[in-house]
Design a protein around this nucleic acid. Structure first.
Lengths: 220, 220
DNA sequence: AAATAAATTTAGACAAATCTAAAACACAAC
DNA sequence: GTTGTGTTTTAGATTTGTCTAAATTTATTT
């Protein structure tokens, strides 16, 4: 409907992501997510409140309004479609798509995005397994499970990776783990919460930090 | 090498285009091209001079330095590759590509552009017939002729359109004129410099303004 | 060569987005 | 219920890009 600056869009997107887990988002959380200062966050939150994109009472944290959520889903749609395009058509590797998509997502032409969607064949998930909102902002919520909660010896398929930093993606590439990879948890160690998983007859050791970022669906 | 703001890039691009015809570009020319005020132009010219992208002595007009030209060609490469992508892959019509490419051109990832170029099959000209600079900024200069200078009854092929406004492109679409269209000038009228051209057994009347914007190559 | 007109530059102001440092607030601990 | 700590907000400054209005320079005309 309206157009927002690159900066506004980045704040909106960050609030959207943080409120998934936290419900209410705080100033410090947002500042560290966006690598900016708390004072800057407050300034922007006032602005977005004026534009009715979020609910915010001083000192009480914030969450997106209905309108704010719609805007966020639009940005996420653009981001994930570009990621898909970069990986699928331009053959970017898994860990490179995110950074470039961060820029492309701010080019906001509805027609561009809808035609891109069509050109790509209406993909449902991006290269990290995250669902892509459709034209109306509807997003698929699949019941995925973190491998820390997976029972032993149960076959499952990687469908999502939590973190998007190039560090984690580099590590996963090294261990041959990607979206669609079939795996089984063979052992869990209580000492450090690390685990051993099996992929194609090969065994790998996974740290707790890494495990927390790998999500799977059961084989269907 | 370095990164420039969207605003800086727009000024650089505009100077590049204006100096093709004029040699030396003036403050007012640039201001009207960019729909801004002369004072803003002066401010930006000082900045670009400091960055050694252009030659400029107060009151003497300006032209791009060697470095400035290289930067300009990079921007033009991005713009025209995106235009080609939009028209060829996303099926945008001729008159829609320019506006969207204006935004995409500012996403400056060398890898993105080089991979896009490869994906598109290294096209040589954009949908308006303008040549696309290669990775090294080299640009094809073809000896094209404006139809105002075309002898009567000589077969020629449209290869370029001067103006890029959606108005002119809409008009051309209506008359079935596009890149690759074969035409012949049948008559010129001295009164208003309008002319009659023939396309596929059909005759069309072309105003002086329009004729000045249509460029052709002779049939080969 | 002086006067006038046009183009260009300067000076000062403003909006957006950011920052630092100081003040205000919330809340847990005593 | 006062105190203290950490969080959040305010106040004021900065940078980028823009503008208006005034001053300056260049060009034109007589």
């Amino acid at each position: 409907m309206f157009n927002y600056s690159t900066s506004e869009e980045n704040y909106i997107k960050a609030v959207f992501h943080l409120q998934q887990s936290d419900g209410m988002v705080t100033t410090n959380e947002l500042a560290s997510e966006l690598k900016t200062k708390p004072a800057s966050v407050t300034d922007m939150m006032k602005k977005l409140k004026n534009k009715k994109l979020l609910h915010y009472q001083p000192y009480q944290g914030f969450r997106l309004s209905h309108e704010g959520n719609k805007v966020a889903l639009g940005i996420i749609r653009r981001h994930r479609l570009w990621e898909y395009f970069l990986a699928e058509k331009l053959k970017f590797s898994w860990d490179e798509v995110h950074a470039v998509a961060e820029h492309l997502e701010h080019v906001s032409s509805k027609k561009l995005i809808d035609k891109l969607d069509e050109f790509l064949g209406f993909p449902r998930v991006d290269p990290h397994g995250d669902p892509i909102p459709d034209v109306n902002g509807k997003i698929e919520t699949s019941k995925q499970v973190c491998i820390t909660a997976l029972p032993l010896n149960k076959q499952a398929v990687v469908c999502h990776v939590g973190d998007q930093s190039s560090e984690i993606l580099e590590l996963l590439k090294h261990k041959n783990i990607g979206i669609g990879t079939k795996l089984e948890v063979k052992k869990k160690f209580d000492f450090d919460n690390s685990m051993e998983i099996k992929i194609k007859q090969q065994f790998y050791n996974i740290s707790e930090q890494l495990a927390k970022n790998i999500f799977v669906k059961y084989e269907s």
